[in-house]
Amino acid sequence: MSTKHSVTVTVNGKRYTREVAGNRTLLRFLREDLGLTGTKEGCGAGECGACTVILNGKAVNSCLVLAPEVDGATIETVEGEARNGKLSKLQEAFHRNHGVQCGFCTPGMLMSVKALLREHPKPTVDQIKEAIEGNFCRCTGYQQIIESVLDATGQLKPKKEELRRV
């Protein structure tokens, strides 16, 4: 009954066109139709943020967006971070500061932070917390993630840095 929709999107700078059913979520579209499995599904219901991508400049839960809604859109996902096998500055900061443990929340976390940094290149801790409020991490306790963001933006206090090197 439901007709197919032709959806053309630019994901991480690359254009894709696919035919999709109306009930395809953006999350499944990315993972199953485009093979971009970096973006994760946690709850599928807007709670956890594992599925966060940047849609036309704004962080959204891709589990709550339909693929036909994004025809013509520009999308950024975690696959756009590393270039030629080299981690992005933000990824490196997460790596350095133990902002990643199991890594399931990381793709979404990175996208929320990336959207934040575009508006606030030097965010305060409160701004970081607000930006990642919708990204659950069951491993790190968030502190290392906040430090990762501070580090990526040149705001990590040097004292802490020394402590961590011990």
Binding site: G49, V60, N61, L64, V65, S112, E130, E133
Partner: peptide
């Protein structure tokens, strides 16, 4: 309302 991702939509 909700989180940043939700408020954006």
């Amino acid at each position: 309302i909700g989180s940043a991702q939700l408020r954006n939509r």
